[in-house]
Amino acid sequence: MIRFEQVTKRFGDSTVLDEVSFAVEPGEVFVIVGRSGTGKSVSLKHMVRLLTPDAGQVWVGDEIISNARGRRLERLRAKFGFLFQGGALLQWMNVADNVALPLRQNTRMDEEEIGRRVRSRLAVVGLESALAKMPSDISGGMRKRVGLARAIVSEPDIVLYDEPTSGLDPVTSRTIDELIRDMQRQFGMTSIVVTHDLHSALRIADHIGMLHDGAMLPPLTPSEFIRSTQPVIREFLEAQYITRRGDWETEETVP
């Protein structure tokens, strides 16, 4: 579905991605983890050509998006929904208008149908009662859920999540995790999630790819990831008190 081939990206003197290659299969939840500044969000932005690689190619299906322009880029981007870190809602529109935006701008649907679709997507994220609220009047977690409703309202093939649970309380984080899994189950969407929250990654992922020093380690299933003996992965797991058995240790039980 999505394939990175030897993608390199530099910002000034710093090489963020160094010949990174990996593939995401259709219908799976692929989670990219790594420490801050390792290029997780940068990878995600390459998938929709918000950033262009200095070398290498990004494939979406059987087309290269990293050199696409104009109509071809629009057609490829139409396959995607994108949940940005802060939700990226337009501040002058209420929740319903924000979710309806891609339908009003890109389709010829009538208002009645748009209203029905918006209500159903807001129901999926548990916010059908917040239709008339403005983005400034709702919490960060609610904004992310509205962003998610907007990302899926056009029924895209692929949904990209940039830190969907960062800054949220554990209960809301779990709700978002369940929503991501539900998106895959209900709509068969391919999901690519960027996070440094390993608890969340282990709950939702089919495969986990870790970015470290500009390179992507070979993607692993959650159980393989937990049992991995690679020092970088072990360090990352232990920093979040996750044992090889897969249970969460408390700070007191860590030797």
């Binding site: 932005k45 929709v48 918000l50 629009e74 981007r77 139409a78 995607f80 994108f82 940005f84 870190q85 802060g86 990226a88 809602l89 337009l90 501040q91 935006l101 891609p102 701008q105 890109n106 907007r150 056009s154």
Partner: peptide, 13 residues
Amino acid sequence: VQEEVAALEVMTI
């Protein structure tokens, strides 16, 4: 700055 313009571009707006 708040990535709203990037969101518009991804939505092909």
